[in-house]
């Protein structure tokens, strides 16, 4: 088993004294914080968000630039069976993306029904997945990004049941089996069987001052990434000038991904 000796001693202590365990939880991650900092030029925000302009997306028929970029940058495996699919960003139809309104309103223009809506983790302000995770393996960062700590995930899949957007993937098999012969991004790890994964808004790129891979890859300028808390940001400008939708807003999750429809 992978249980370490050090860990084992910790457990022995924690099992006897749950209180002590709780105290440990309280202080984790704060030790010697002064010795770490943000790299120079890192993009730092208060609430990162994405605006997807559907007037521009779908301009080029069959375009998969953003999806391919993400798949490469994060070494996302490909499996032929839908059962085991892993996807961080993908396309779906209006009817399935906006389930709450589409079933009630059949008279939307055909054009919109056929648009390739991009879907990904919504990085909710009030994320149900974070609420249910028993190990804090998924958590909300101060900048609004809902992140995963793959080192801690036990693979219970409670977060998958909790996510109302179907954004989470489980590694049913060794993901490396789905990377055979693919060009790898040597800078990013793969995952392993038995953990959950999803879009991370490219935290590893933001730390280096780069935009998310999908945003950078889109030649139509359909994807805009920025800080929702900054009134002068580009996302805020877009949202103040255009009417945008979010998925299932009635659930109170407050998604950070917006869709400008028309």
């Amino acid at each position: 088993m992978e249980l370490k000796r050090r860990q084992f001693l910790k457990i022995a202590g924690a099992a006897g004294l749950l209180g002590a365990g709780a105290a440990q939880g309280l202080f984790e991650g704060t030790a010697q914080a002064s010795r770490v900092m943000h790299p120079e030029g890192a993009l730092i925000g208060k609430r990162w968000a994405m605006v997807i302009d559907m007037r521009k997306c779908g301009e080029k028929e069959g375009c998969n630039d953003c999806i391919n970029a993400c798949n490469f940058v994060h070494n996302i495996p490909h499996f032929d069976t839908p059962k085991e699919e892993i996807k961080w960003i993908w396309k779906d139809e209006y009817e399935h993306v906006f389930t709450d309104i589409s079933t009630l309103d059949p008279y939307v223009p055909e054009r919109i029904k056929e648009l390739p809506f991009l879907v990904m983790c919504n990085h909710c302000d009030n994320p149900p997945c974070v609420r249910v995770c028993p190990t804090k393996a998924t958590f909300r960062r101060p900048d609004g990004i809902v992140a995963m700590d793959y080192h801690r995930c036990i693979g219970c899949r409670f977060c998958m049941a909790a996510c109302p957007y179907g954004s989470r993937n489980f590694n049913w098999r060794d993901p490396r089996l789905g990377l055979k012969g693919r060009k790898l991004n040597y800078e990013f790890p793969t995952r392993m069987r038995g953990v959950v994964e999803k879009c991370n808004f490219c935290v590893e790129r933001l730390a280096k001052g780069k935009m998310p891979a999908c945003v950078e890859a889109c030649k139509e300028g359909a994807l805009t990434f920025g800080d929702l808390a900054d009134p002068n940001s580009e996302v805020r400008k877009l949202l103040s000038e255009n009417y945008a939708l979010r998925r299932k807003p009635q659930l109170g999750t407050k998604p950070s991904v917006f869709y400008i429809i028309a």
Binding site: E28, G29, A31, Q32, A33, R35, V36, M37, H38, P39, E40, A42, F139, R141, P142, D143, A147, D149, H151, V203, A207
Partner: peptide, 16 residues
């Protein structure tokens, strides 16, 4: 382990 937590959980990726 500390690097991992700093980078992923605290979002700080530069170490002195």
């Amino acid at each position: 382990n500390e690097w991992r937590d700093w980078a992923l959980r605290d979002g700080k990726r530069l170490y002195e």
